[in-house]
Computed example of a mutant assay.
Amino acid sequence: MGNHAVAVVGGTGPQGKGLALRFARAGHQVVVGSRSAERAQETAVLIQGRAGRNVDVRGLDNRAAVAAADIALLAVPWAGHRELVTDLAPELAGKLVISCVNPLGFDRHGPYGLAVEEGSAAEQAQQLVPGAVVVGAFHHLSAVTLWEEDGLLDHEDVLVCGDDQAAKDRVVDLAATITGRPGIEAGPLRNARQLEPLTAVLIGINRRYKTRSGLAVSGIPA
């Protein structure tokens, strides 16, 4: 797997920051994106300090970050997702877009998956930017674990869904940046309808058992 230029849209949030750190450590060029270029640059400096070595990471506003990369990862809250993706559509067109957005609600019983008109956040992004190739991945990784632990998360798997095989192959390879092994193909993009709300189950498990749970798929040869 060669090195990529990866824009992390929402890179100042917990999930985005953790994924940006992991990609940078693996030798990829990382552009942290935020609505505020100043906040993005502050996060880039934090990542450089956390990485413990020289890494290629900088911070820009979301539009400039996407324009500077060949892969764009959406790590943004569900609230405002439609508006943000619509605004960035010109820059996202023609790129590989990875969505790890989880449309979740919370009430007194805990987290739950929200109904999405298009089926899932990933499918909404694909409809909003038909010129991009959208792949769903990295939904179930703990933001705290990504940021605080130094080693590979070799006890977890990254599930990858999408309709374009070449794009899925790139993301399957990129997943090894996090876990040390390729991601697992999880079917077409419509399967994001199951993957995204599954995050609510993991959050509930974490609360019940005071842990940071993840997913590992058995029966797949190493």
Rank of each mutant, 00 (worst) to 15 (best):
L114W: 10
R193I: 07
D173H: 12
N206L: 12
D154G: 03
Q41K: 07
L215F: 12
L189T: 01
K95S: 02
G131K: 08
V9R: 05
V6L: 08
A65H: 05
C161A: 00
L84F: 02
L141Y: 07
A200S: 10
R181P: 12
R58A: 14
Q41D: 13
T211F: 11
L104N: 10
Q48N: 09
A89G: 02
G162W: 07
V30E: 00
D87N: 03
I71K: 00
H4D: 07
P188S: 02
L88F: 05
G187V: 04
E196A: 15
R63S: 09
G52S: 07
F106N: 14
I203C: 12
R39K: 09
P103Q: 14
E83M: 08
T43I: 10
G113I: 11
A93W: 10
L128H: 02
R190W: 06
K17F: 13
E123P: 11
Q127C: 11
P130V: 11
G11S: 07
H140T: 06
E118F: 13
A51F: 08
V158F: 03
V172I: 11
T199W: 09
D169C: 13
L19Y: 09
A20W: 12
E117R: 14
L60S: 07
G10Q: 05
L74H: 03
D107F: 15
R207D: 08
G2L: 06
G2D: 02
A64C: 03
P182W: 06
D56A: 14
L114K: 14
L88A: 04
D107K: 11
V30W: 03
V116C: 05
L73A: 01
V144L: 13
A93D: 07
R207I: 15
F106D: 13
A26I: 05
P188A: 00
A137K: 10
R208T: 09
G94E: 04
V144Y: 12
A64R: 07
I98E: 01
A115Q: 11
D107P: 10
F138R: 15
G119M: 10
S213V: 11
L128D: 03
V134G: 05
G80I: 01
L215W: 00
V129G: 03
R35P: 12
Q124N: 09
L159H: 03
A68T: 00
I47F: 11
C100W: 04
R25I: 13
W147D: 08
T179E: 04
R82G: 06
A192T: 02
L84Q: 04
R208P: 14
A67G: 09
F23T: 04
